[in-house]
Amino acid sequence: MLSFVAKRFSAMIFVLVSISILVFLIFFATPGVDPAARIAGRNADQQTLMQVRASFELDKPLPARYLSMMKHLFVTQDLTSYVNRGAKVLPQLFQAIPATLSLVVGAALIWLFVGIFLGVFAASSKRKWIDPTISVLGIIGISLPVYWLGEVVNLITQSKLHNSVFKWVPALGYVSLTANPWQWFLHLLFPWLTLALLYAGIYIRVLRSEILGVMKEDYIKTERAKGASEKRILYKHATRMSLITIVSLFGLDFGALVGGSALLTEVVFGIQGVGKLTFDSLQNFDLPVIMATVMYASFFVVFMNALVDIVYAVLDPRVRRV
């Protein structure tokens, strides 16, 4: 088990280092892209460009620049922005993380609760309308563009109805939990519901088909033969077994969302999270900020992937040998 964890950990480091090199190459080594010209502005003369190159260390060779950037990011932690000179990158990132986490964790709680509750219900019910309804819910979940759904929600809550039914909905934005918990909740409620709507459908569908699959396994037949009640079989055996799949699916979705997929939701609802920070810095080519946010994002994805693998290995010893 320990060697499995160690192996997984070294693979994680390898992937993270590769991603940092990849990001660096995309922004500095793509032919035709000159970061100095971006920083200096559209009509900069040759002298200004030279100055910019010298002051941002853009005249040094690529490997040296990469190492220097990594050193400032991870060792001395004083990487500064290209656009707001002198502004440190890491405090900006750490300031944005709570907003993204608030958004994703809140939405995740809603969709997990709804997904597991309705998923188990759908698996235990034999009513005829369940089957097509679940399929439609699942398909809607993967077919709705989140930013458009967000716009529709804004249209409903912020437009004409804002003076009557939705008077209590605050204007778009984010208030931190520590500043005002009630306002934090109100500001995030509709972003949560928007995000949760997309995922809940998928989770209901996956959980239901998993439970129905497990119900056909031999050990369930054994339980029945032993005289266990259908209720006990459903909750104690089938649902518990199926939750393993949900846990791994959740790990991946959660990592991907915190790691960047929440970007569109943040942009639409004006939440100043990591996604919004990334998007704003992409617009003005603020490479140090991009590097920091991408490293943070990939760390989350890689970490959740590794966690899922390890949890799986704990639950299912066969995996460890691979």
Binding site: S18, I19, L22, I26, G32, G260, S261, L263, V301, V302
Partner: peptide, 27 residues
């Protein structure tokens, strides 16, 4: 497989957005 691992761990929207921003200036 290692190359696939790296791209897989790169959040997909982030990768697409980064590539688009860069390629829109360079072609």
């Amino acid at each position: 497989s290692r190359i696939l691992d790296v791209i897989w761990a790169f959040p997909v929207y982030l990768l697409a957005i980064s590539l688009s921003v860069v390629l829109l200036t360079s072609g």
